[in-house]
Design a protein around this nucleic acid. Structure first.
Length: 696
DNA sequence: AAGCAATAG
DNA sequence: GGTTCTATTGCTT
């Protein structure tokens, strides 16, 4: 999940007082013509960019799903790795990407929740993006737990409406050594940005129950760099005066966003290890190594200059599903794994509502010579005749059509007449086309009308009168490429691009107001609610045991929606059975005959005494569920299954008697469950994109 | 359009 | 640096 240096916390946070003045002249070029700051009004061409970063996101999601996990050391497990953990666990020495064995040594009471199924994280992630988008369309996602927001226009609007007398001090921290009142007077736009950031963080907390950090600066690079200065759940603003200070404090070039391992290695080969080294290195020499554009970009990054615009992300451009394992070496096993992956991916594709034009299979082969992180892939068009099946809901039909296709690609990759050893398989749909206007139009007319200002100018609207530009742009790019100019990526088009150019959104002033509402009224209007009864699956006894504050939180509408009812309706319902199918009937992850994988996963976490169990049992029916769930069976989802299915599963688990089914043509367990889940929850999910952008 | 490398969380 | 499970962009063919 993470690159493990989210933990830098303290090492870069002590900003030195030394103000190195070799940079400002170049900085001036980033913010337009040199202007005497003291004499002139603040240049309007200055962007205000926010970066949001949720605190240990996966752990937060799990603690919302199961509040009993609050206050206990919690880790999120994928295979034999603790990919992330909450702060209680961190206090006891658990870190991201630590092996389960090592984590348990550090923290014997560590509670582990399996996080291999990303459904809930993905859903919550998009709720965050969507919440931000309800204030301005310029929101760019970075992974599941970070967002950039360009609030330049909001700042301008508010500043114009703000009387002189208003309190003008920064919200949150300011990374600067200057005194606070001087800073605030000199940087009203950043001050305003810090107020907006605080409001948005508060909205995330009150509406979604999530906490996180924010960085406020004049570009994405800087906003991201400062956002983690004070963790958790705090925000910090960066003043332009302090830019070179910040950059100089970075421990290494690797810490510069955009400089990965390879780039860092090549830079090191040139003798460059610190940010300062790169700042002072002759551009011409850099060009020899990296070529013109890359060299300039690198140099700019080292100086804290980043012209890249906040590019609205919109709906995802590809959906993929993958699984890693110790070893797969037979074609039969490959086929079953592919079928398993495709089942859940096709289901996701169906809920998305778009139709994929291309399909890709990728593998990772084991190689003793430690080259085994590289992947190989083959792709092909999705046959026209099965495209409509995605929207028609017969997902099993799609799977049976797709499996042979996938196997064809597999045989392009692997000579199965020789021995092979795979450690990962990934299936991916891309080139997603929006079709079947029905669901899409209702989506927009009902909930997204205000977002249509996303469209650039009216002339650029093609591909359907009802289509929101956001999805239009991302899904139809290939066909209307003419003068599209859509979300610009041009690195050259600095600040001016995001304001002046007709290409980028939010030209219409009156519409702008709809978005950039400056008062809190916007915040409250989503769910005006009913008295909240406990959701049916919450044990009232357990509920009473929770801290009062948690109880209150749970009774707010947002929780009423996202608690157990979530696992009943929509995606969760359909994905949960597949998880159980994986564990109970498939050969690799759950049952005896995959001893190597079982070893890897279960040795450190015996199936009978999993941390997640304790929490799970409390949710419902302690008496009946006296045994332990297998790993990553969601107890809440389980509890909502028909009783007979529950019994069947329990007897399976108790006997540790895998349902051995070798017929690859059908998957009785899965399809049966998938159907059963659809009925009780929400009456079958419409094909739409609400999954990504429905207002909570 | 295909395949991969690099970067990101 | 790699472990997991994604997702995006840009280079090369």
């Amino acid at each position: 999940m993470d690159k493990s240096d989210d933990e830098v916390e303290e090492d870069e946070t002590e900003w030195k007082s030394s103000f190195v003045d070799s940079v400002p002249s170049s900085l001036a070029s980033a913010s337009g013509p040199r202007v005497d700051r003291t004499a002139e009004p603040i240049p309007a061409a200055h962007r205000v960019i926010l970066h949001f970063d949720l605190d240990c996101f996966y752990a937060q999601v799990e603690m919302i799903r199961n509040p009993a996990l609050r206050g206990v050391p919690l880790g999120i497990q994928q295979k034999y790795i603790v990919v992330t953990c909450n702060y209680v666990a961190r206090d006891q020495g658990v870190t991201k990407l630590m092996s389960v064995t090592h984590a348990r040594e550090k923290c014997p009471q560590l509670v582990l929740v399996n996080g291999e199924d990303l459904t809930h994280y993905r859903e919550t992630s998009y709720k965050v993006t969507e919440l931000l988008m309800s204030h301005t369309p310029l929101v760019e996602r970075l992974g599941f737990d970070e967002n950039f927001v360009d609030v330049t226009k909001m700042v301008d609007t508010r500043l114009a409406e703000t009387p002189e007398s208003s309190n003008f001090t920064f919200k949150g921290h300011v990374s600067s050594h200057f005194s606070a009142d001087v800073e605030a007077r000199d940087h009203p736009r950043l001050v305003m940005g810090s107020h907006i950031a605080a409001e948005l963080r508060e909205a995330m907390h009150s509406k979604l129950g999530l906490t996180g950090c924010a960085g406020i600066a004049t570009n994405k690079l800087l906003a991201k760099l400062v956002s983690g200065t004070f963790k958790p759940n705090q925000q910090t603003s960066l003043l332009p005066e302090n830019v070179s200070n910040i950059m100089g404090c970075l421990a290494s070039l690797r810490k510069v966003p955009g400089v990965g391992h390879q780039t860092a290695r090549r830079l090191q080969a040139l003798g460059l290890v610190s940010v300062k080294d790169l700042q002072l290195f002759p551009l011409s020499d850099l060009v020899k190594e990296f070529g013109g554009p890359s060299a300039q970009r690198l140099k700019n990054l080292a100086l804290g200059i980043d012209d890249s615009p906040v590019t609205p992300t919109g709906a995802p451009q590809s959906l993929s599903d993958e699984d890693s394992f110790k070893k797969i070496s037979s074609t039969q096993d490959v086929l079953e794994k592919i079928e398993e992956l495709l089942s859940s991916l096709v289901e996701r594709m169906h809920k998305d509502g778009r139709q994929p034009q291309t399909f890709r299979l990728t593998i990772r082969r084991y190689a003793a010579t430690n080259k085994w992180f590289s992947r190989e892939s083959r792709q092909c068009p999705v046959p026209k005749d099965i495209g409509h099946l995605f929207t028609s809901g017969r997902t099993e039909d799609v799977v049976v059509q797709l499996v042979p296709l996938a196997m064809k690609l597999f045989h392009k990759l692997v000579d199965s007449s020789a021995a092979f050893h795979l450690t990962l398989i990934n299936v991916c749909f891309s080139n997603l086309q929006t079709r079947g206007k029905g669901s899409i139009t209702s989506f927009f007319t009902e909930r997204m009308s205000s977002r249509r200002i996303q469209c650039q100018d009216d002339s650029s609207q093609r591909g359907g009168p009802f289509m929101d530009h956001q999805f239009h742009a991302h899904s139809l790019t290939s066909q209307d490429s003419s003068q599209k100019a859509a979300p610009i990526k041009s690195p050259r088009s600095s600040d001016a691009a995001s304001h002046g150019s007709p290409v980028v959104a939010v030209e219409d002033r009156s519409l702008l107001k709809v978005f950039c509402s400056t008062d809190g009224s916007e915040f409250d209007k989503s769910d005006s609610k009913l008295k909240n009864p406990l959701p049916p699956n919450v044990d009232p006894e357990v509920f009473r045991l929770l801290p009062e504050e948690i109880q209150k939180e749970l009774l707010t509408p947002i929780y009423a929606n996202s608690l157990p009812s979530t696992s009943l309706s929509s995606d969760t319902a359909n994905d949960a059975p597949s998880t159980m199918t994986n564990k109970s009937s498939k050969s690799f992850t759950g049952s005896e005959n995959a001893s190597d994988v079982k070893e890897a996963v279960d040795d450190s976490c015996p199936p009978d005494r999993q941390g997640s169990v304790d929490a799970g049992e409390k949710v419902k029916g302690e008496g009946r569920l006296s045994f332990c769930f297998p790993r990553n069976v969601d107890p809440k989802v389980f509890s909502e299954l028909p009783l007979d299915v529950q019994m069947e599963l329990m007897s399976e688990w108790k006997q540790e008697n895998p349902v051995l089914k070798n017929s690859p043509t059908r998957k009785p367990a899965r399809s049966l469950m998938a159907k059963d889940r659809k009925a009780p929850g929400k009456p079958s999910q419409e094909n739409n994109l609400l999954k990504y952008f429905k207002p909570s």
